[in-house]
């Protein structure tokens, strides 16, 4: 039960950090954002501890049920943001990341009371590896899309000569483009490996590597978009506007695969 206790603590502290970030935007003080970052870090620690307890108490890597996965997604996103925060120096990104983390945590906390028994088919070391790789990749893509959205907003403001208000809160175009690029560079190989590991497991569980299941298909479509984006960036030298826009589009497709499929479609990829 320690895991749920820490999860609730993390949820509460995430909420405080959201309030902090929102306040920092409202009062426009870097100090408030700095404090919020530390609070966010504290929440992240609670969250980490909760994972450890859950692992100890259930005996499986807690990334199996959809709720566990949501929680892990939130954790990975927070972790990646925190890890690169000192480098990117864009605290205002926290004002995007923290509310999303918090909402994911609310969704996750609905199903994390008590434990589910794991179907025999999922008891393979490949399954947690598949989830961890894919979800970390997807969390990076989420950050890429936040940076992309901020890029488009900032760019629109600069193009339309509205640079005196909200624009001051946003990082420079180059910084946002760099974050977008970075998250893409790391997210892509992780998701690719995640899918490969998944298909290795699928061979043992379903008898074939690929099933043309809706979830797989949508993920594949999103993967193709990301591959295209990465190619354009690296080979053609895409920067700025187009890259930001495409990273948003690709993430929208990925979201369909992540959320909509599990809710509205019958899929072989849903287990619990």
């Amino acid at each position: 039960m320690m895991d749920t206790m820490f999860l609730k603590a993390a949820l509460a502290v995430y909420f405080v950090s959201v309030l902090g970030y929102v306040t920092s935007i409202y009062v426009r003080r870097v100090m408030v954002a700095k404090v919020s970052t530390w609070i966010f870090f504290l929440a992240f620690l609670c969250h980490t501890i909760s994972f450890i307890f859950r692992y100890l108490e259930t005996g499986h890597t807690p990334v199996i049920s959809i709720y566990e996965t949501l929680s892990f997604f939130a954790w990975a996103m927070a972790g990646v943001y925190l890890a690169f925060q000192p480098k990117t120096k864009t605290r205002v990104l926290g004002a995007f990341v923290s509310p999303v983390t918090f909402l994911l945590m609310i969704a996750a906390s609905k199903g994390l009371e008590g434990y589910v028994s794991i179907p025999e088919v999922l008891k393979s070391n490949l399954v947690p590896l598949h989830v961890i790789l894919s979800v970390t990749g997807e969390a990076l893509f989420a950050l890429a899309s936040f940076a992309g959205a901020m890029y488009l907003i900032q760019e629109g403001l600069i193009k339309n000569k509205k640079v005196s208000g909200f624009s001051r809160m946003l990082p420079s175009l180059s910084d946002l483009d760099r974050i977008n690029h970075f998250c893409l560079m790391w997210g892509f190989p992780l998701l690719t490996l995640g899918v490969l590991v998944g298909s290795l497991w699928a061979r043992t569980a379903w008898g074939s590597h690929w099933q043309w299941d809706p979830k797989q298909v949508w993920t594949l479509v999103a993967w193709v978009f990301y591959a295209l984006l990465l190619h354009q960036r690296l080979a053609i030298g895409w920067k700025g506007h187009k890259a930001a826009f495409l990273s948003l589009l690709a993430f929208a497709i990925l979201l369909v695969s992540l959320v909509a499929i599990n809710l509205f479609f019958v899929t072989a990829h849903s287990f619990i």
């Binding site: 900032q154 600069i158 640079v163 624009s167 990082p171 420079s172 175009l173 180059s174 910084d175």
Partner: peptide
Amino acid sequence: VELAKKIFGS
């Protein structure tokens, strides 16, 4: 100068 920083960062 401020605009240039908004675009290029450093």
